[in-house]
Amino acid sequence: MEEVEAAVTAHLDQVSGLVRALSSELRSGIGPAADSLLAFVRAVDWTEPWLVCLMAFHATLLLTAVGLRRNANLQFFFLFLAYSGVYLAEKINIYLAEHWKSFANRNYFDRSGVFISVVWSGPLIFISIVTVVSSLMTLCQLMVKWKRAELRHRARLAGDKQE
């Protein structure tokens, strides 16, 4: 029982430390976050062939998802594909960390997975958001068509009763 209490206390201390750190960063403004993002962008060699191919893959996937937005089955397939990619990001990061010399000039794949989250998971999550918004818009359009058809049907029935 004491071990559980100690573990819970340690976890609460860790969470409170994270909350304090987040709070202090939020009070300091967006400047430090923008500086960190800019430093990240400058640290990566975006001309490496594998990164160019990865960006092209994400762009193609996004354009395909937008282009096929009227097909609900393909939308759900893209959603499944995107979420599966995000789910597998940790395993992909581990594999790429072990084999980075065969395709990259530098090892970008740290244990915390920041790089893979930015260049792999981030775009996939964006694509899934676009897919969900597109699906919701299609659903809204379908609901409007359905309601109009229902109103036309009621008007026809009302017209038949009057005659």
Rank of each mutant, 00 (worst) to 15 (best):
L142F: 00
S134Q: 15
R148G: 00
G122E: 09
V132P: 05
Q141E: 14
L139G: 06
S121H: 05
I125T: 11
I127Q: 13
H153I: 01
Q141R: 13
F115W: 10
K145H: 10
L124M: 12
V130I: 15
A155W: 05
K145E: 09
S134A: 15
A149N: 06
R148K: 07
R152Q: 08
K147W: 00
K145I: 02
F126I: 07
S117W: 01
S117R: 06
V132C: 07
R156Y: 12
S135F: 13
L136R: 07
H153R: 13
L136E: 04
T138S: 15
W120S: 11
E150K: 00
L139K: 09
S134W: 08
V114K: 06
R152L: 04
V118H: 09
R148I: 01
L139R: 11
L157C: 06
R148W: 00
P123L: 08
S128Y: 04
V118D: 07
A149R: 06
M137H: 06
I127E: 10
Q141L: 10
R152C: 03
F115L: 13
A155S: 09
R148H: 01
R154F: 04
A149P: 00
L124V: 05
F115T: 12
G113Q: 00
V118E: 09
L139C: 12
M143T: 01
L142W: 01
L136Y: 04
R148P: 00
S117H: 05
R154M: 07
I129L: 15
V133A: 15
S112W: 10
M137E: 10
A149G: 05
H153Q: 11
Q141I: 02
L124Q: 07
A149K: 05
I116C: 03
L124G: 03
F126L: 14
K147T: 00
M137T: 05
T131Y: 09
L157V: 08
G113S: 01
T138Y: 10
G122D: 09
V144Y: 08
V118M: 13
Q141V: 03
T138N: 14
I116W: 03
S117F: 03
T138R: 14
R152Y: 02
S128F: 04
F126V: 12
V130C: 15
L157R: 07
S112N: 11
K145C: 09
L124T: 06
G122T: 08
W146S: 02
V133F: 14
P123T: 06
C140F: 11
R156S: 14
I129Q: 14
F115V: 11
V119Y: 02
S135R: 10
V132H: 05
C140G: 12
C140N: 14
V132A: 09
L157E: 13
V114Y: 08
S117V: 00
L157G: 02
G113P: 01
L136K: 06
V119E: 04
I127D: 12
I125G: 05
W120K: 09
H153A: 07
L124Y: 06
T131R: 11
R154A: 05
S135C: 11
L136W: 08
L157W: 03
K147R: 10
V118N: 07
R148F: 00
M143Q: 05
A155L: 13
L157M: 12
T131V: 15
W120R: 08
